[in-house]
């Protein structure tokens, strides 16, 4: 990183750190926690959609696996809650390894359909394996994260925000490191031209599997954070509604970037609240937003910034006056 982007990143981290102190409103603080968790999930999906160039409709299933793993381990086996995100990541990543190993043999739309199928299978199993998951009733009274005697549930949203923020910044840094590494160049090469990537020594399948497992593991960690924060989880976490939400965040924010999914998660969480009165019509608004972005702003909202800057740097492009 050169000096200017580093300063900008440090500024953003500082702003995010003071954010919850700008309001005493517990509900707004709750929204900030949700944003941080969703942003983390969007960043993980972005590894698949933005860096590897594959679309996954099964990502919410890994989110759910992480949430259930962590909740069940802490409730039934007394595993410390702080280990939850890491164990959730390991189990979700293991599922990602098996599913990716099968599904990544095909690419493009067929891969997207396969992930839809695997996601639906995991959702259905969670729904019907009542002995383990309590089925559609979900699991409630999940123990929260705690610091000594202080429980970090939504009554302590400000504290939980910092927990989620640490995980979010960690994942953002992991993504940044990836993009400055040889491995990250392989991801992009595979996205841009798989045949050429293979011809320079990149194992296309292994590269995609690598990215898929990391992405699903991060989603699992996000699921654990979510479960211990809200303290209630249901199989709905794995439903298409959450799949759609994550895809909207990545595409509307800007795929293939780090800031994009963070902005996408902010747009999603804010709109979800602002449009609460509109009921199911919200989904129409989200669909319209997604469609508009795909057509008019394929780079997502982050590309607006780049466009504006380019316009400022080149105020009179040739032929633009016509």
């Amino acid at each position: 990183m050169t000096a200017a982007p580093r300063m900008r990143a440090l500024g953003a981290v500082a702003a995010l750190a003071v954010l919850p102190w700008l309001t005493g409103n517990a509900f707004l603080q709750h929204m900030m926690v949700l944003w941080a968790i969703y942003a983390l999930l969007a960043l993980s999906l972005n590894i698949i959609v933005g860096y590897l160039g594959e679309l996954s409709f099964g990502h919410a299933a890994f989110f759910g696996i992480g949430a259930y793993t962590s909740a069940l381990l802490s409730m039934q086996w007394g595993v410390p809650v702080w280990l939850g995100p890491f164990l959730g990541a390991i189990v979700a990543g293991a599922f990602g390894l098996v599913i990716g190993f099968v599904a990544l043999r095909i690419v493009g739309p067929q891969f997207a359909i396969l992930t839809l199928g695997f996601g639906a299978i995991l959702h259905t199993i969670t729904n019907y394996w009542v002995d383990l998951t309590r089925g559609p009733m979900g699991i409630s009274n999940i123990p929260p994260f705690s610091l000594g005697p202080i429980a970090l549930d939504f009554a302590q949203a400000r504290n939980m925000y910092y927990v989620a923020l640490v995980f979010l910044l960690g994942v953002a840094y992991v993504c940044h490191a990836l993009m400055t590494s040889r491995r990250g160049r392989a991801f992009i090469a595979v996205r841009e031209n798989p045949a050429l990537a293979a011809s320079i020594g990149i194992d296309v399948f292994a590269t995609k599997l690598h990215g898929f497992v990391v992405a699903t593991a991060i989603a699992g960690a996000g699921g654990a954070l979510y479960g211990h924060y809200l303290r209630v989880i249901t199989p709905e976490l794995m439903s298409l509604q959450y799949v759609a939400a994550l895809i909207i965040m990545v595409i509307v924010g800007g795929k293939g970037t780090i800031v994009g999914p963070l902005i996408g998660a902010l747009v999603y969480v804010s709109l979800l609240e602002m449009l609460r009165a509109a009921g199911p019509l919200r989904l129409v608004v989200f669909a319209a937003l997604l469609t508009a972005c795909v057509i008019f702003l394929p780079g997502g909202l982050v590309s607006l910034w780049r466009r504006l800057r380019e316009r400022r740097l080149a105020p009179e492009p040739a032929g633009a006056s016509a």
Binding site: A177, S181, R185, A186, E192, G201
Partner: peptide, 29 residues
């Protein structure tokens, strides 16, 4: 013609160096 069309000329060549090094994600991390 087979290139990485969205990448810059330098990044196209940079991608080509893949097999000459062995480092991965962890080194950058």
């Amino acid at each position: 013609t087979s290139l990485f069309p969205e990448l810059t000329v330098a990044d196209n060549v940079r991608a080509g160096t893949y097999r000459t090094k062995t480092g991965g994600w962890a080194g950058a991390l």
